[in-house]
Design a protein around this nucleic acid. Structure first.
Lengths: 196, 196
DNA sequence: CCAAAAGTGTTGAATGTACACCCATGG
DNA sequence: CCATGGGTGTACATTCAACACTTTTGG
C-alpha cells in the first residue's frame, strides 16, 4: 500500500526510432522538500533531453500522487531502451504526452528536440511523420518551416545513396529553444502582420 | 513550517468584470487519498465554473507542493470577491492562468466560459478585449467566430440604448464544452480541408 | 539515357485584417 | 435629420496543400 502522502515524479520520454515514436517511462519518489526538477533528474538523464515540460499531475490507480513530465530526445542520441510493459497509468500518460507533442508540432518549433543537429528535409520528414501520426509531404514541410524561419540552411549537401538522386541540402533548426511560431491562429493584435 | 509531505490545491478563477479580468484565488490542503477534483471542489464552488483545467504543479516558496487549476466564470455569474493581496506564488499562478487563457482564446471556443448564455457581438468584444489583453474589432471577431461555427444566432435582438443605434443581433456559443476550432495551424493531415 | 531523389513554380482555396459603406434606432 | 451603434461588402494579404515540373545524381 503506497503512502498516500508521497509524491512520484514520472518522466515520459519520447524519441523517434526507425519510423516509430518510442516511449521511455521512469518514475521516482520525490524526497521531502525536494524540488520537482531534482526528482526528475534522478528519474532520467535530463542533460540528454533536448526539451522538457510538465505534463500533468494526477492520482494514480494505486492512490499515489504523480506529476508527469514530457521529455524529448533527438533521434540520433543514445537513450534508454523502450519501456514496453506499460502500466495502464503509464500508458495514459504516454498518450497524453504524444497528444501534447502532436499539437505543439504544428505551431511551435518543438521538432528541434526530436531532430539531429543537422538533417535533410527527408530525414526531418521521417521524424515528423511518426510524431504527428499522419503523413506529411517533404515539399510542404520544407515550405512551411523555411517560410516561418524555423529552419536555416547549413553549408554543404548530403551525397545521394547508391540509387542516385539529387544531393539533399542540409538544414538545422534556427533556434533550439521552444518557440511559438504561430502565436495567434486568429484574433491577432491590430496592426501586427507577419514580421517578415 | 509546512509539512513537506502535504499537497495543496489552488483554484485560480478568472472572470471579466467591468472591462477587467479579475482573479479569485483559493487554496485548500488535499486530504490523504483525496482525489484532486474533490479538493478543488472544497476550494471553490466548481458548479459555478463554466470551465476548469489543470494549470501546473510546483513547489511554492514555503516548500508546499501545490497543484493549480484554472477556472472560468461567465461575466454575468455571481462569484466571490476579487482576491487582491496576492502572495508572489499566487501572483505567478494568476499570470500563468491568464497566459493559458489568452493562448486558448485564439484557437478554441473557451470564451463560452467567460460569456453569458446569450450576448451581442459588442458584449462579447468587451469580454475578449480584457481576456486577450489587446484590442479586437467587433467586425473581425464576428467574422472569425461565425465562420468557424463557434457562434450561432439566437432569436431576437437587443434594443438600443438611450443614444440610439441599430438593435444588435443576439448570439450564443454553439457548444459550451471546450473545442479546438483550429486544430492544425499547419501540417494538416493530407486531404483534410476545412469541413465547411 | 533512365530511374530515383530533391527541390522549385504555380495554382487554387481558405482564412484573416482593414476599411468603406449601409442599416436601424433614439432624440 | 443627425448622431450613434450595428452589420455587411469588398479588397487585399497571408498561408497552405496539391501537384506539375525541373534539377542533379548513380548506374
Amino acid at each position: 500500500m503506497p503512502d498516500s502522502t508521497s509524491h512520484t515524479v514520472v518522466a515520459v520520454v519520447l524519441q523517434v526510432r526507425q519510423g516509430r515514436l518510442v516511449p521511455i517511462v521512469r518514475r521516482v519518489d520525490r524526497g521531502p522538500a525536494e524540488p520537482l526538477e531534482t526528482a526528475l533528474a534522478r528519474a532520467i538523464d535530463v542533460a540528454a533531453l533536448a526539451h522538457v515540460e510538465q505534463l500533468e499531475t494526477r492520482v494514480l490507480r494505486d492512490g499515489t500522487l504523480a506529476t508527469a513530465y514530457l521529455g524529448l530526445v533527438p533521434a540520433d542520441a543514445d537513450a534508454p531502451d523502450e519501456t514496453d510493459d506499460l502500466a495502464p497509468d503509464e500508458s495514459e500518460l504516454v498518450t497524453a504526452a504524444h497528444a501534447r507533442l502532436r499539437a505543439k508540432l504544428s505551431y511551435t518549433n518543438v521538432a528541434f528536440a526530436l531532430a539531429p543537429e543537422t538533417f535533410t528535409i527527408s530525414e526531418l520528414r521521417e521524424i515528423y511523420v511518426p510524431a504527428l501520426g499522419h503523413d506529411v509531404s517533404a515539399t510542404n514541410l520544407q515550405r512551411v518551416l523555411v517560410r516561418r524561419g524555423v529552419l536555416a540552411r547549413v553549408e554543404g549537401r548530403r551525397a545521394p545513396g547508391r540509387t542516385g538522386g539529387r544531393p539533399a541540402a542540409l538544414y538545422r533548426f534556427a533556434s533550439r529553444r521552444l518557440e511559438i511560431t504561430d502565436e495567434f491562429a486568429a484574433l491577432r493584435p491590430p496592426g501586427s502582420r507577419a514580421t517578415g
